[in-house]
Structures are given as C-alpha cells and as structure tokens.
Amino acid sequence: MSAADAVRQAPPRRYALVLPPGWVRIPLREGTKDALEKVLFSHMAEVPEGIARDDAMRFRLDMRRQLEKQARAARRNGGLDLYLPVLPRGGIFLMASFIVAEMPIGQNHPTPPEAVLTRLADENVPGGTATTVDVAGKPALRRSYRSVPDQEEPGSAPEAVRRIALPTRRVDYVLPVPDDPGRWISVTFSTPGDGDVDSEFTGVLVELFDAIVGTFAWSDE
C-alpha cells in the first residue's frame, strides 16, 4: 500500500456519541468479529417474546448472519461504525440502526463545505426533505425520506422473527470533517418502525436518532 493510499484509507478524526441504554457500537474497520460475538452472546441474553427456548440459539445465529451481512455492506460503502439496539423493549427488539461512514465528496478537488451543503440541499429528495442544520457547532445537512424495497429479503429464522423487507424511514446527516478539506462523513439512520413509516411510533424512533446526533462531538483523543 502506498503512502497516499494509507492516507485515503485512514479514518477521519475521532468522534463521540452518547447512546441510549441498550444500544451498542459495532466497529467496521477492525474488531468487527469480536464485537458481534459480544453482542450476540452477552448483550442478547434475552430473545423476543414468541420465540421458543429451543429456538433461541437459532435466533441468535440468524441474527449474526444478518448483522454480518449488514456490516459487510456498510464497510464496502465506507462504513466506520454500525450502531443498533440489542436489548428488547417490552419483549420486542427495535428494528432500527444507523451507520457512520466516510463519504467520497471532494477528495480530489476539495470544495468549501458551504458550497457542498448548498448543492446537496438543492438536490431533489423524492418524498422527503433536506435542510441545513447545526451539528457539533458546524453546519451540516439533514435529509429525511422514505425507502420502498423492491422485494422481500430472504431469511431462515423462525416465522416470528423472519426479517421481511419493509418500507423504511431514513434520515441522513452529512457532516464535513473540521480542518480537513475534502473529508466528509454521513450518519445514516434506517427503520421500518412498526410497519407504518408515518406512525407516531416511527416518529419517536426518528426523534431518538435526532437526539443521538445532537450529542455528536469531534474528539482528538
């Protein structure tokens, strides 16, 4: 690997987030396997209501396959970290997650952040909105929209936990890395909520994500 390649592949400055109880971070650049093991066999001591005791291991193995698939896809797209809830609420696991990833914006020809944000805000977001917001004391972009799947996602879990591809509510934050021209990250949230992307329950999950991003801070530690 050349020195230039090493620079391009180095992650941005460190950041910090305050997570709600029951949420965990899965690093995607290194330590992914160990983090998944900890999540599945330490944090996930409980299984959702409706899953028989004899199906508990099968449930965890299926969850591991799903999480590994999600982690691989996120890493291929510049993912740094995957965040998800691992403790059930009222016997139900929340179907939600968000990914922090690098974005290939202006890496070869750095552009002033204000110009990039203006251009992104002007782009059409079908069925959604794009607004300029403040994150960690700096301008950023927030996009909110719906995503409709083309087909069901296959799965081998018991019917009670089989993951079906549902319409999802998505929220993206796009942030420039301070004092590092041409470096950007995204924080992308996705949830089918309770199956209705416009329901009050789904709205509460979006508000929770917005609150998490509200704790975002850059760190040199």
Score class of each variant (00 low, 15 high):
D81M: 02
A35Y: 09
V135R: 05
H109G: 07
D134V: 14
V187L: 03
V197I: 15
G203V: 00
E207K: 14
R72P: 13
L175V: 14
V197R: 10
L84T: 03
F41V: 00
A211G: 08
L205F: 01
A74M: 01
T168R: 14
R169Q: 11
M44K: 12
G195N: 05
E159R: 12
A52V: 00
V24Q: 12
L36N: 07
A121C: 10
T215K: 08
K38L: 06
G193C: 04
M95Q: 12
P104D: 05
R29C: 05
G31F: 13
T215P: 08
D180Y: 07
R65T: 10
K38W: 13
I185P: 01
A130S: 06
Q107R: 15
A3L: 14
R170S: 09
L40V: 00
D5Y: 10
R146V: 15
H43E: 04
F41P: 09
P88R: 06
S219M: 01
V213S: 02
T168L: 12
R183N: 06
F201A: 14
V100A: 05
I51N: 11
A16H: 07
D62I: 00
P12H: 11
E102A: 01
A121D: 08
V204F: 07
H43S: 07
V148F: 02
V148A: 00
Q151C: 02
A74K: 03
A211L: 06
L120R: 08
M95R: 15
K38F: 11
A130C: 01
V18D: 04
K69L: 12
A96L: 06
F216G: 04
S190P: 08
S144P: 01
V39G: 11
D198S: 07
P85S: 04
I99L: 10
P112M: 00
F189A: 00
L36V: 01
P88S: 01
F209Y: 10
